[in-house]
Design a protein around this nucleic acid. Structure first.
Lengths: 376, 376
DNA sequence: TTGAAAGCGCTAACAC
DNA sequence: GTGTTAGCGCTTTCAA
């Protein structure tokens, strides 16, 4: 069963390669119905599969794209991947998975590989927001690229799909700060990420509005369970050792992702601190597990799957040669209140969703439409 | 910046394409040190990147491989993917991600694409264990393949990396059945999967040994949180309606994966049934979340990351032309007892690991060595 | 409607 | 050591 080539099929059918090629790419004209049927039959019988590698060489299109993400192991990303993969696959594109382990070096190495592989486009959820040499490389090679989840440089300078981080963080912080005595501990992501900057801005804005800037403390985590745990355990330890009225004390934690929030929850539980009675906790992302921990985690929900899909859609358009005027697709996050925040007495920001069936992720149907709509 | 080719470099360096090619593939001999340095410098300066597509056409090697998995969204798989990806990447291979959504049709379609892409090999965590037409297709095209996590056909007929499902299930069931009054509800995976068959065998064996075959009930789930929830909620409802002494009642649940176990936990909690006091619960996989739910989930731990790595290793050997005698690499699962099972009074199977720091996955160091060792 | 022929960018004999 | 020459399997003008 030596690999069949288009030449074999041509020979078997007694026609030229060109004719077979026309049939394979079903060019409407250029082939008689008779020959066409015969060739199709032959292809079917022999199980011939054209070599996409050779095709790529001839046409310049590889029909594969690169998807770069920081950490497939973090439950947020699989959904993003799945969204993109599904759409891309529907449209006949295959996907090179590039897991960077949050390392910029790995990311750059991957980008190089993707260029060599002659991908038709790249979706990039970058490990950093500052460095763009590799993005330039892609651009110089004429490879369309859409940023996902994290911006690099200014948001409007390149195509991308993001959630409104500032708004999400603002709403979360504002909710926690609704209580006059709230002392807020914000576990931000790594400095330098666009998300961290935006979310911090949101939190600070909320603090300012609440006149609580002196009751806000910001710590830097790395998005892992462990860092959420350690940061909170550390803050707790300070409180213990210092006088009871130390300014380090906090009674609310807002983590930049659910995974860190879960780590925070564990630290609190380990110290026997009741959540949400003594400390309220809020996450970001709304991963599936968020509703499964105890108590179920209040969080800022992102339309993750839709973001993946949207990035694929956008990339497909770029590959198709379109030049959408709006560069950034901004999705709207939604506050989901579950068990780690106390039910609201006063009307604060966000809806009173604590009785939402916890397994249900809030479906951001409306904003999805509006958000995706902005691109036109 | 029209794409540079090897011809350009050759022209610029005043040498032939062959020489450049030799340098690019750093063939030890065949190029003078002088020219070599010059060419290298030129490549560096121009940022030339050889087209792997053309190379593939010329050599027959694509340096990319296909990774087929059922559901990237289930927290078990990302680890598998990561293990495989890391090793493969180290060795210069890129990875096409094929998420089948547990659909055999999608899987077959993907396999076809992979063949067209001329992948050098495939790692296949199949959606089903019965159908092997697509595997045959791969084999007919001379593409090395290693099965991962799930067998297709008999375990020894093809190369693969698996966990000892029967043993894991046996130990879990035996542990639950250590109590004389245990009535065990086993939430198996979809019928037809090799895993389901093996795990069922393990459970039944344990029941037989405990003389408890009449106290075992087997239900079929689909690995989702929802199915775990519904199955248990349903069984619970039966119990309510029937007489209190109905045979449908159970006081232990063993789920074929952690995700279903978490669903079960939720159903139990919703009915106000204390775990583990009234009902013990055990999962399978030991995903990161397992330790994060409340109570932390007792489970059968798989060395997931290592399985991914091992599958990559095995595939690389096959690609390298080796024909290992042992076809199957069988990893050893490990019982991890946490909060959803009662601490053992009598010495039963497994260790008394309930005080294991819950965030820590038991490190299966020893069996990893022995298991991987079996292949030689 | 069909075929012949020239490439796509690279590698690998085989000469020199 | 270095260059020449065929291809790898496909698409795509351009003629017929």
């Amino acid at each position: 069963m030596g690999k069949l080539t288009i030449t074999d099929i041509a020979r078997l059918a007694g026609v030229s390669k060109a004719t077979v090629s026309r049939v394979l790419n079903n060019r409407a004209e250029g082939v008689g119905a008779q020959k066409r049927a015969q060739i199709l039959k032959l292809v079917e019988e022999t199980g011939f599969q054209p070599c996409s590698t050779a095709r790529c060489l001839a046409t310049g299109e590889s029909r594969s794209i690169g998807l770069v993400i920081p950490d497939i192991t973090n439950p947020f990303y699989p959904l993003l991947v799945r969204g993109a993969e599904r759409r891309l696959n529907e449209c006949g594109y295959s996907l090179f998975l590039c897991n960077t382990d949050r390392s910029l070096e790995t990311e750059e190495a991957y980008v190089r590989v993707l260029i060599e592989k002659r991908v038709d486009g790249v979706i990039l959820d970058s490990a950093g927001s500052m460095h763009d040499a590799h993005v330039r490389l892609l651009e110089d090679n004429g490879i369309p690229i859409v940023l996902l989840d994290r911006a690099i440089g200014h948001r409007t300078s390149r195509y991308g799909v993001f959630v409104d981080n500032q708004r999400g963080a603002f709403e979360a912080a504002a909710h926690l700060l609704r209580r006059d005595d709230c002392r807020l501990l914000f576990l931000n992501g790594p400095a330098g990420l666009s998300q961290s900057i935006e979310r911090r801005a949101g939190v600070e804005e909320a603090a300012r509005l609440a006149g609580a800037t002196d009751r806000l403390r910001v710590l830097e985590g790395d998005f892992s369970v462990d860092s959420g745990f350690r940061l909170v355990a550390g803050a707790l330890a300070e409180t213990q050792t210092a006088a009871k009225s130390t300014p380090a004390a906090f009674n609310a934690v807002f983590a930049a992702n659910d995974v860190m929030a879960i780590g925070a929850l564990r630290a609190l539980k380990q110290c026997g601190i009741p959540v949400p009675q003594e400390v309220e906790v809020m996450g970001f992302d709304d991963i599936e597990l968020a509703g499964m921990v105890d108590p179920p985690l209040s969080t800022v929900s992102q339309p993750t799957l839709e973001m993946g899909t949207a990035s694929a859609d956008l990339l497909l358009r770029l590959i198709g040669g379109e030049k959408p005027r709006r560069k950034a697709v901004i999705m709207v996050p939604q506050l989901v209140l579950r068990g780690t925040t106390r039910s609201v007495a006063v009307g604060g920001a966000g809806d009173l969703g604590s009785k939402r069936s916890a397994g249900q992720v809030a479906e951001p149907v409306t904003q999805r439409q509006s958000a995706v709509g902005t691109i036109r």
